[in-house]
Design a binder for these strands. Structure first.
Lengths: 165, 165, 165, 165
DNA sequence: TTTT
DNA sequence: TTTT
């Protein structure tokens, strides 16, 4: 288990790079902030934390490319990853990033910008990174009749096979 | 581990009850929705799920009482809990709720309503349920010098003892 | 956002049903427990919460079918869903379940049972529900050179298209 | 929202430091690993990610001090934090850590080591970081009668005031 | 560098 | 440097 969940604002328009074979990679800077009140002075104080988010997931990259701009509020779910690199002096350096890459990765816009724009849903919404023109059938139709009810329904979803998360 | 995370909208103004000893308990109905596009018709479809949220945590109840209204967008973190009760025929019935009660429970307003009203932070923001006039010192000042740096700072926080989450 | 995370033990061997078109659906009962010490008596006390988990995701169903037995310790990530049904008196009844169905759903064995059996990983491990004989290339190879380093790598993953989570 | 959830193994015995005023700070290295099967060769492959975890929370530090050893399997919930420091050349360097500091921070042992040792619970278990000799009353006793039942119970918990998470 |  |  290696999961990061962020809700925050994008500090600058995303950078989109492409690999040699044309695959997009998006880089985002996300700010999360917390506020508290000083115990002594009673003043409100704030601390902002900045996160680097790297989106390898192609579908999510498309969402980023089309909809995410500086200032957008995002819900992000990814993994922590530290990569090693060498600086100009040849010294080892490490950078830790929140990586969105397939399994368990999500990006949802929370401020209603973007196409159609809803945001309260986890799975969906127009700009939510989960809606690439696919249909994943009727949502969760039913469950075990043995536990008391349920029609049985049609269970037409095929999430394993054809949904590109 | 028993954790529920919801981001959704409040369906009606919260009900606040009080126990005999005056402790508040808030009940909320929260809608989360997901949208998707029908594979055949290409139409956008939506499914909404409704959740019952019960807030036992006193600080969070105050936030609910003061700031949460019908339509508010909330971030909720709590636990799943099923309680048994008898209906009028004396039959056992079960209700499953998302309970906010201390440890790991959170409620944050995401739409900037309420006092001061920020929302992007996890720990804080005016109406965020984490800001009861307390000060929890300077945020996380530093870390192990042995891993390369850090001033050591003053580590003045006393989160274990005096912060009422 | 509608997410449930559970770590707990399976109360009985899973039930696997099949839909008319042959799709499997697994039902699990999971216990999460918490302990605490009584403030007055100093005694240790415990409370167990039982959850019904319904696995629609076909790949995860296979994992359940092959590896999950009574007593297994599982990590579960799914969505809360309440369905309505009628009891024998024709009254409306509601059951709330944790549904594993595609996006953001996970099931990982935490006790090293099952094929090869690892458990500490988030994405994988032999019986972890994320390992259906696929290769998703080299893991997250690199990131934006503009932020200081990184070879660029080969970015050979194709998680959007061919990984059946 | 700034949350990190890790389940992994401790790479070395924790380091415990103390601030000038005697407050403990624990440093942990945690490995999370994922495995997958190579698409071409069919070989099992593995990637391990290492995380630095800094525990400021005093109660959790005690748990670490007493129970956490090299090899322990832990559940960690904390926040991402990047701190800036200067290396010996005076250059700015950054380190990103998972910080456990009050609100929403958790550490639970998952391998049944430690006093009493359970692990499946989220809130508790003997060595689970949530059990400092406190009583938080009867667990979540009830909910809104208006939604169909529940005795009302005694609501004796006082989580806001006296539980030192 | 964001947002409230 | 862990674990499976």
């Amino acid at each position: 288990m290696n999961k990061v969940i962020l809700i925050g604002n994008v500090g600058a328009d995303p950078e989109i790079r492409r690999t040699q074979d044309g695959r997009p990679i998006a880089n985002l800077r996300i700010a999360t902030s917390e506020t508290w009140r000083d115990r002594n002075s009673g003043e409100r104080r704030e601390k902002t934390e900045w996160h680097t988010v790297v989106v390898f997931n192609e579908g999510l990259c498309k969402v980023v490319e089309q909809y995410v701009k500086k200032g957008a509020k995002l819900y992000i779910e990814g993994q922590l990853q530290t990569r090693k690199w060498q600086d100009q002096q040849g010294q080892d350096r490490y950078s830790t990033e929140v990586v969105l890459q397939g399994f368990g990765s999500t990006l949802t816009m929370l401020d209603g910008r973007g196409e159609g724009g809803g945001a309260s849903g986890g799975r969906g919404s127009g700009a939510g990174g989960n809606d690439y023109g696919d249909d994943y059938g009727a949502p969760a139709p039913a469950s075990s009749p043995s536990r008391g009810g349920g029609s049985g329904g049609n269970f037409s979803r095929d999430l394993d096979d054809d949904i590109p998360f």
